[in-house]
């Protein structure tokens, strides 16, 4: 009982946001290190890839559908660091990692706390349901910003260390593109969780949409049937042009961010109206 003070002054700004970030501090650090390590691995392989034309020939012999799945534009440019990392990092591994983080964080935002029973305690205070959701969204965005920054820092560092000569502005663009892809998938999980209170469906819906975004972009290159759907894919909008080589398309990026905010807003309306479980 000694040494416990209940009398110190508290800072009451954004309590949920700060509580969430404080509890996620350690796991977020692990994620950031993992992202940086992945980039380090790819960067370390670059010198051997550059000198090896056999890769390129092997790739060209693969069927077009297979190539579409593993590259963003269906073409592969392994002769430049930006092209190489665009394929290795941004076309699959990076978005997958970020989506896993975002969906986990998003689904735990409302639905996770609700299924653990702690949401009722948070909401027994004067803080509103909408406010909790907004602060959880803020924590998700902050976490993704950290991971985007980790990717940016790692790319800057390894590019300089290994003389890859990547454009710093486009490195930042790639970090932002990845973080925004996470924001979209995380917002879906957060919104579905807010609307239903159930983390399972929240995760499933978000994962389904992430995979659909990925497949629509890939398959639209093979069949004209999916062509019109391609601009609806956040994967295409954010990563379709390899931002590491070509920069971020600002309009589409803002559109994805706007849709994410809208989804969370819709989640807030539904959360406000339903019974807590």
């Amino acid at each position: 009982m000694t040494g416990v003070t209940l009398t110190a002054a508290s800072d009451t700004r954004a309590p949920v946001l700060r509580h969430t970030l404080a509890t996620q501090r350690r796991s977020l650090a692990v994620w950031a290190v993992a992202v940086a390590a992945l980039i380090g691995l790819y960067a370390a392989l670059w010198p051997s890839v550059r000198g090896n034309t056999g890769w390129r020939q092997l790739f060209d012999t693969l069927p077009k559908g297979y190539r579409a799945l593993f590259t963003v534009g269906g073409n592969i440019d392994l002769s430049s660091p930006a092209g190489y990392l665009g394929v290795e990092l941004l076309a699959f591994m990076g978005p997958t990692l970020i989506a896993v983080y975002a969906i986990g964080t998003g689904s735990s935002g409302i639905a996770g706390e609700e299924s653990q029973g702690t949401l009722e305690l948070v909401l027994s205070t004067p803080i509103t349901r909408g406010r909790v959701l907004i602060e959880r969204f803020g924590a998700l965005a902050a976490g993704l910003a950290v991971l985007g920054a980790a990717q940016t820092a790692a790319l800057l560092g390894f590019s300089a260390a290994l003389g890859m000569g990547l454009d710093p502005v486009r490195i930042v663009a790639a970090g932002a593109a990845l973080a925004l892809f996470g924001l979209f998938t995380g917002s879906v999980a957060l919104a579905v969780g807010a609307a239903t209170g159930r983390p399972g469906p929240a995760r499933a819906t978000a994962a389904l949409l992430a995979v659909a975004a990925y497949l629509i972009n890939a398959l639209a290159q093979l069949t004209s049937v999916l062509g019109p759907a391609r601009p609806l894919s956040p994967f295409y909008l954010l990563l379709g042009n390899n931002p590491l080589a070509n920069g971020l398309r600002v309009g589409p990026a803002l559109a994805v961010a706007g849709v994410s905010v809208l989804l969370v807003g819709l989640g807030a309306v539904l959360l406000e109206r339903r019974d807590l479980t």
């Binding site: 209940l6 949920v16 509580h19």
Partner: peptide, 20 residues
Amino acid sequence: RLTGAQTLEYMRRLRGLTRP
């Protein structure tokens, strides 16, 4: 993972109580 004191502190912030 929060201690009792940390839980109280979090709830106090949620209640907007700057000090008790």
